[in-house]
Protein backbone atom coordinates (compact mmCIF):
# COMPACT_ATOMS: atom_id res chain seq x y z
CA UNK A 1 0.00 0.00 0.00
CA UNK A 2 2.70 2.40 1.08
CA UNK A 3 4.82 1.09 -1.73
CA UNK A 4 2.13 1.90 -4.25
CA UNK A 5 1.78 5.35 -2.79
CA UNK A 6 5.49 6.12 -3.05
CA UNK A 7 5.42 4.84 -6.62
CA UNK A 8 2.57 7.15 -7.53
CA UNK A 9 4.30 10.02 -5.80
CA UNK A 10 7.54 9.29 -7.57
CA UNK A 11 5.93 9.14 -10.97
CA UNK A 12 4.40 12.51 -10.17
CA UNK A 13 7.72 14.17 -9.59
CA UNK A 14 9.06 12.49 -12.70
CA UNK A 15 6.29 14.17 -14.63
CA UNK A 16 4.76 10.83 -15.62
CA UNK A 17 1.60 10.78 -13.51
CA UNK A 18 0.14 13.60 -15.51
CA UNK A 19 0.42 11.52 -18.70
CA UNK A 20 -1.42 8.65 -17.06
CA UNK A 21 -4.22 11.04 -16.15
CA UNK A 22 -4.23 12.30 -19.74
CA UNK A 23 -4.59 8.73 -21.05
CA UNK A 24 -7.42 7.90 -18.65
CA UNK A 25 -9.24 11.12 -19.43
CA UNK A 26 -8.89 10.61 -23.18
CA UNK A 27 -10.35 7.11 -22.96
CA UNK A 28 -13.20 8.25 -20.74
CA UNK A 29 -14.02 11.19 -23.01
CA UNK A 30 -13.97 9.03 -26.16
CA UNK A 31 -16.35 6.53 -24.55
CA UNK A 32 -18.70 9.17 -23.15
CA UNK A 33 -18.88 11.47 -26.11
CA UNK A 34 -19.31 10.42 -29.75
CA UNK A 35 -17.93 13.74 -30.93
CA UNK A 36 -14.68 13.60 -28.97
CA UNK A 37 -12.75 11.13 -31.09
CA UNK A 38 -13.75 12.65 -34.43
CA UNK A 39 -11.11 14.00 -36.80
CA UNK A 40 -12.61 17.45 -36.50
CA UNK A 41 -12.34 17.61 -32.76
CA UNK A 42 -8.88 16.06 -32.61
CA UNK A 43 -7.74 18.65 -35.13
CA UNK A 44 -9.41 21.37 -33.13
CA UNK A 45 -7.93 20.09 -29.90
CA UNK A 46 -4.41 19.84 -31.31
CA UNK A 47 -4.81 23.36 -32.60
CA UNK A 48 -5.74 24.58 -29.12
CA UNK A 49 -2.72 23.15 -27.31
CA UNK A 50 0.28 24.99 -28.85
CA UNK A 51 -0.64 28.29 -27.26
CA UNK A 52 -0.48 26.96 -23.70
CA UNK A 53 2.46 24.70 -24.50
CA UNK A 54 4.53 27.70 -25.57
CA UNK A 55 3.58 29.63 -22.45
CA UNK A 56 4.39 26.59 -20.32
CA UNK A 57 7.83 26.18 -21.90
CA UNK A 58 8.63 29.75 -20.96
CA UNK A 59 7.29 29.38 -17.45
CA UNK A 60 9.20 26.12 -17.06
CA UNK A 61 12.51 27.86 -17.78
CA UNK A 62 11.73 30.70 -15.37
CA UNK A 63 10.61 28.33 -12.61
CA UNK A 64 13.60 26.00 -13.00
CA UNK A 65 15.84 29.05 -12.53
CA UNK A 66 14.04 29.65 -9.24
CA UNK A 67 12.02 32.56 -10.64
CA UNK A 68 8.50 33.06 -11.96
CA UNK A 69 7.16 35.20 -14.80
CA UNK A 70 3.74 36.78 -14.46
CA UNK A 71 4.21 39.00 -17.50
CA UNK A 72 3.87 36.28 -20.17
CA UNK A 73 0.13 36.74 -20.78
CA UNK A 74 0.53 40.48 -21.25
CA UNK A 75 3.47 39.92 -23.56
CA UNK A 76 1.48 37.42 -25.63
CA UNK A 77 -1.32 39.95 -25.76
CA UNK A 78 0.84 42.84 -26.95
CA UNK A 79 2.31 40.49 -29.55
CA UNK A 80 -1.13 39.54 -30.83
CA UNK A 81 -2.38 43.12 -31.24
CA UNK A 82 0.88 44.33 -32.80
CA UNK A 83 1.16 41.45 -35.27
CA UNK A 84 -2.45 41.86 -36.26
CA UNK A 85 -2.47 45.66 -36.16
CA UNK A 86 0.81 46.30 -38.00
CA UNK A 87 0.48 43.34 -40.34
CA UNK A 88 -3.14 44.16 -41.16
CA UNK A 89 -3.54 41.59 -43.92
CA UNK A 90 -0.19 42.22 -45.60
CA UNK A 91 2.14 39.22 -45.44
CA UNK A 92 5.42 41.18 -45.61
CA UNK A 93 4.29 43.54 -42.89
CA UNK A 94 3.12 40.54 -40.90
CA UNK A 95 6.59 39.00 -40.85
CA UNK A 96 8.12 42.37 -40.02
CA UNK A 97 5.76 42.66 -37.06
CA UNK A 98 6.73 39.15 -35.94
CA UNK A 99 10.40 40.18 -35.91
CA UNK A 100 9.54 43.37 -34.04
CA UNK A 101 7.67 41.36 -31.41
CA UNK A 102 10.61 39.03 -30.84
CA UNK A 103 12.78 42.12 -30.33
CA UNK A 104 10.23 43.39 -27.82
CA UNK A 105 10.33 39.97 -26.16
CA UNK A 106 14.09 40.21 -25.70
CA UNK A 107 13.63 43.70 -24.26
CA UNK A 108 10.97 42.55 -21.80
CA UNK A 109 13.12 39.59 -20.72
CA UNK A 110 16.11 41.87 -20.15
CA UNK A 111 13.93 44.34 -18.25
CA UNK A 112 12.57 41.59 -16.00
CA UNK A 113 16.02 40.24 -15.26
CA UNK A 114 17.36 43.73 -14.66
CA UNK A 115 14.74 44.11 -11.92
CA UNK A 116 15.47 40.66 -10.51
CA UNK A 117 19.25 40.47 -10.79
CA UNK A 118 20.39 44.07 -10.43
CA UNK A 119 17.67 45.60 -8.28
CA UNK A 120 17.07 42.38 -6.36
CA UNK A 121 13.29 42.64 -6.69
CA UNK A 122 11.62 39.24 -6.16
CA UNK A 123 10.55 37.84 -9.53
CA UNK A 124 6.91 37.68 -8.44
CA UNK A 125 6.75 41.42 -7.82
CA UNK A 126 9.05 42.41 -10.68
CA UNK A 127 7.08 40.56 -13.35
CA UNK A 128 3.78 41.66 -11.82
CA UNK A 129 4.97 45.22 -12.48
CA UNK A 130 5.97 44.37 -16.03
CA UNK A 131 2.58 42.74 -16.54
CA UNK A 132 0.82 45.98 -15.57
CA UNK A 133 3.02 48.09 -17.82
CA UNK A 134 2.41 45.82 -20.82
CA UNK A 135 -1.35 45.67 -20.18
CA UNK A 136 -1.38 49.42 -20.09
CA UNK A 137 0.52 49.63 -23.38
CA UNK A 138 -1.91 47.23 -25.05
CA UNK A 139 -4.90 49.31 -24.01
CA UNK A 140 -3.15 52.50 -25.06
CA UNK A 141 -2.70 50.94 -28.49
CA UNK A 142 -6.21 49.56 -28.87
CA UNK A 143 -9.21 48.66 -26.75
CA UNK A 144 -10.83 46.40 -29.34
CA UNK A 145 -9.88 43.90 -32.02
CA UNK A 146 -7.44 45.46 -34.43
CA UNK A 147 -6.21 44.64 -37.93
CA UNK A 148 -6.10 41.13 -39.30
CA UNK A 149 -3.80 38.26 -40.12
CA UNK A 150 -3.10 37.61 -43.82
CA UNK A 151 -5.36 34.87 -45.11
CA UNK A 152 -2.61 32.67 -46.51
CA UNK A 153 -0.83 32.66 -43.15
CA UNK A 154 -4.03 31.41 -41.49
CA UNK A 155 -4.42 28.76 -44.14
CA UNK A 156 -0.88 27.59 -43.45
CA UNK A 157 -1.74 27.28 -39.78
CA UNK A 158 -4.90 25.28 -40.44
CA UNK A 159 -3.37 23.05 -43.07
CA UNK A 160 -1.91 19.89 -41.82
CA UNK A 161 -0.88 16.32 -42.18
CA UNK A 162 -3.90 14.24 -41.23
CA UNK A 163 -5.21 15.55 -37.91
CA UNK A 164 -2.01 17.48 -37.21
CA UNK A 165 -2.16 21.22 -37.89
CA UNK A 166 1.07 22.88 -39.05
CA UNK A 167 1.23 24.93 -35.88
CA UNK A 168 1.18 21.71 -33.89
CA UNK A 169 4.01 20.24 -35.93
CA UNK A 170 6.06 23.41 -35.51
CA UNK A 171 5.52 23.19 -31.76
CA UNK A 172 6.64 19.56 -31.72
CA UNK A 173 9.87 20.58 -33.45
CA UNK A 174 10.41 23.43 -30.98
CA UNK A 175 9.81 21.04 -28.08
CA UNK A 176 12.31 18.56 -29.45
CA UNK A 177 14.91 21.32 -29.78
CA UNK A 178 14.20 22.60 -26.29
CA UNK A 179 14.42 19.09 -24.88
CA UNK A 180 17.75 18.58 -26.60
CA UNK A 181 18.99 21.93 -25.34
CA UNK A 182 18.02 21.07 -21.76
CA UNK A 183 19.92 17.82 -21.99
CA UNK A 184 22.96 18.92 -23.92
CA UNK A 185 23.78 22.52 -23.18
CA UNK A 186 26.09 23.94 -20.58
CA UNK A 187 23.69 26.78 -19.88
CA UNK A 188 20.84 24.38 -19.11
CA UNK A 189 22.97 22.50 -16.60
CA UNK A 190 23.79 25.78 -14.90
CA UNK A 191 20.12 26.77 -15.03
CA UNK A 192 19.19 23.77 -12.89
CA UNK A 193 22.12 24.42 -10.57
CA UNK A 194 21.33 28.09 -10.00
CA UNK A 195 17.65 27.29 -9.45
CA UNK A 196 18.54 24.44 -7.10
CA UNK A 197 20.86 26.45 -4.87
CA UNK A 198 22.40 29.74 -5.99
CA UNK A 199 24.99 29.64 -3.19
CA UNK A 200 26.21 26.18 -4.17
CA UNK A 201 26.39 27.35 -7.77
CA UNK A 202 28.38 30.39 -6.68
CA UNK A 203 30.81 28.31 -4.69
CA UNK A 204 31.24 26.06 -7.72
CA UNK A 205 32.13 29.12 -9.76
CA UNK A 206 28.81 29.77 -11.51
CA UNK A 207 27.43 33.29 -11.14
CA UNK A 208 23.64 33.28 -11.05
CA UNK A 209 23.01 36.66 -12.74
CA UNK A 210 23.69 35.71 -16.38
CA UNK A 211 21.88 32.39 -15.96
CA UNK A 212 18.74 34.04 -14.60
CA UNK A 213 18.90 36.64 -17.36
CA UNK A 214 19.07 33.92 -20.00
CA UNK A 215 16.10 32.10 -18.50
CA UNK A 216 13.95 35.24 -18.31
CA UNK A 217 14.77 36.25 -21.91
CA UNK A 218 14.00 32.75 -23.20
CA UNK A 219 10.75 32.80 -21.22
CA UNK A 220 9.74 36.07 -22.89
CA UNK A 221 10.58 34.68 -26.35
CA UNK A 222 8.27 31.75 -25.67
CA UNK A 223 5.54 34.17 -24.57
CA UNK A 224 5.90 36.03 -27.88
CA UNK A 225 5.63 32.72 -29.73
CA UNK A 226 2.46 31.92 -27.79
CA UNK A 227 1.03 35.28 -28.83
CA UNK A 228 1.85 34.71 -32.50
CA UNK A 229 0.32 31.24 -32.50
CA UNK A 230 -2.84 32.47 -30.83
CA UNK A 231 -3.39 35.46 -33.09
CA UNK A 232 -2.86 33.34 -36.21
CA UNK A 233 -5.53 30.95 -34.95
CA UNK A 234 -7.96 33.74 -34.15
CA UNK A 235 -7.26 35.78 -37.30
CA UNK A 236 -7.39 39.04 -35.38
CA UNK A 237 -5.61 40.39 -32.35
CA UNK A 238 -7.72 41.61 -29.43
CA UNK A 239 -6.85 42.96 -25.98
CA UNK A 240 -8.30 39.80 -24.43
CA UNK A 241 -6.06 37.36 -26.33
CA UNK A 242 -4.01 35.35 -23.88
CA UNK A 243 -5.94 36.26 -20.74
CA UNK A 244 -4.94 33.90 -17.94
CA UNK A 245 -1.98 32.40 -19.76
CA UNK A 246 0.39 33.00 -16.86
CA UNK A 247 -1.79 31.19 -14.33
CA UNK A 248 -2.54 28.32 -16.68
CA UNK A 249 1.18 27.96 -17.37
CA UNK A 250 2.05 27.94 -13.66
CA UNK A 251 -0.64 25.32 -13.11
CA UNK A 252 0.73 23.21 -15.95
CA UNK A 253 4.25 23.41 -14.56
CA UNK A 254 3.12 22.38 -11.08
CA UNK A 255 0.92 19.58 -12.44
CA UNK A 256 3.97 18.29 -14.26
CA UNK A 257 5.83 17.85 -11.01
CA UNK A 258 8.14 20.85 -11.35
CA UNK A 259 9.15 22.35 -8.02
CA UNK A 260 8.20 26.00 -7.67
CA UNK A 261 11.28 26.31 -5.45
CA UNK A 262 13.40 25.90 -8.58
CA UNK A 263 16.01 23.49 -9.83
CA UNK A 264 13.79 20.43 -10.09
CA UNK A 265 11.47 19.18 -12.78
CA UNK A 266 11.20 17.78 -16.26
CA UNK A 267 9.95 19.42 -19.42
CA UNK A 268 7.94 16.32 -20.36
CA UNK A 269 5.95 16.76 -17.15
CA UNK A 270 5.27 20.44 -17.68
CA UNK A 271 4.12 19.80 -21.25
CA UNK A 272 1.88 17.03 -19.94
CA UNK A 273 0.42 19.57 -17.55
CA UNK A 274 -0.36 21.94 -20.41
CA UNK A 275 -1.95 19.19 -22.47
CA UNK A 276 -3.99 18.01 -19.50
CA UNK A 277 -5.40 21.47 -18.86
CA UNK A 278 -6.41 21.90 -22.50
CA UNK A 279 -7.82 18.39 -22.53
CA UNK A 280 -9.95 19.00 -19.46
CA UNK A 281 -11.40 22.12 -21.06
CA UNK A 282 -11.98 20.39 -24.38
CA UNK A 283 -13.58 17.25 -22.99
CA UNK A 284 -15.82 19.15 -20.60
CA UNK A 285 -17.04 21.03 -23.64
CA UNK A 286 -17.59 17.81 -25.55
CA UNK A 287 -19.39 16.08 -22.72
CA UNK A 288 -21.62 19.12 -22.60
CA UNK A 289 -20.83 20.40 -19.15
CA UNK A 290 -22.11 23.94 -18.79
CA UNK A 291 -19.62 26.80 -18.99
CA UNK A 292 -20.31 27.63 -15.34
CA UNK A 293 -19.55 24.20 -13.90
CA UNK A 294 -16.46 23.85 -16.09
CA UNK A 295 -14.37 26.16 -13.96
CA UNK A 296 -15.38 24.25 -10.87
CA UNK A 297 -14.54 20.83 -12.30
CA UNK A 298 -11.30 22.01 -13.83
CA UNK A 299 -10.30 23.51 -10.50
CA UNK A 300 -11.21 20.35 -8.62
CA UNK A 301 -9.09 18.13 -10.88
CA UNK A 302 -6.13 20.47 -10.60
CA UNK A 303 -6.36 20.85 -6.83
CA UNK A 304 -6.64 17.07 -6.38
CA UNK A 305 -3.58 16.46 -8.54
CA UNK A 306 -1.55 19.12 -6.81
CA UNK A 307 -2.56 17.87 -3.36
CA UNK A 308 -0.88 14.56 -4.15
CA UNK A 309 2.27 16.32 -5.18
CA UNK A 310 2.39 18.72 -2.26
CA UNK A 311 2.05 15.94 0.31
CA UNK A 312 5.06 14.36 -1.35
CA UNK A 313 7.17 17.46 -0.85
CA UNK A 314 6.37 17.51 2.83
CA UNK A 315 7.49 13.91 3.19
CA UNK A 316 10.77 14.60 1.53
CA UNK A 317 11.71 17.36 3.97
Amino acid sequence: MNDLKTKIIKSFSNGLAVWIIIALLTITASLTSKDFATLGNVNNYLGQTPFLIMGTCGMFLAVIAGQIDLSIAALAKITSVLVSGIGNGDENKFWLAVLLCYAIGIGVGLFNSFLIVKLKVPAFVATLGTYSILEGLVLAYTNRGIGSIPGNVIVKFYDGVGPFPVSFIVVIVILALLGLWLKKSRLALRLFAVGGDPEVARRSGVASGPVITASMVLCSLFAVSAGIIQVCRAGVGTPTTGNGLELAAITAVVLGGVSLMGGRGRLVGAIGGAILITLIDNSLNMIGVSQYSQGLLRGAVIVAAIAVFVSKRQQST
Binding site: K184, F192, D197, R203
Partner: peptide
Protein backbone atom coordinates in the same frame (compact mmCIF):
# COMPACT_ATOMS: atom_id res chain seq x y z
CA UNK B 1 27.99 22.22 -1.48
CA UNK B 2 26.35 19.66 -3.71
CA UNK B 3 23.03 19.77 -5.50
CA UNK B 4 21.01 16.74 -4.38
CA UNK B 5 18.76 16.69 -7.44
CA UNK B 6 21.58 16.60 -9.94
CA UNK B 7 23.77 13.66 -10.84
CA UNK B 8 27.24 12.99 -9.50
CA UNK B 9 28.95 13.92 -12.76
CA UNK B 10 26.85 17.06 -13.17
CA UNK B 11 27.87 18.12 -9.69
CA UNK B 12 31.52 17.32 -10.30
CA UNK B 13 31.69 19.46 -13.42
CA UNK B 14 29.36 22.30 -12.47
CA UNK B 15 31.07 25.52 -13.57
CA UNK B 16 33.84 23.77 -15.52
CA UNK B 17 31.75 21.67 -17.88
CA UNK B 18 33.71 20.14 -20.75
CA UNK B 19 32.44 20.62 -24.29
CA UNK B 20 32.63 22.77 -27.39
CA UNK B 21 30.51 25.85 -28.03
CA UNK B 22 28.34 25.47 -24.97
CA UNK B 23 27.37 21.93 -25.92
CA UNK B 24 28.09 19.58 -23.02
CA UNK B 25 30.30 16.60 -23.59
CA UNK B 26 28.36 14.27 -21.34
Amino acid sequence: SLLPHMTVSENLFLGIEPGKLSVLDR
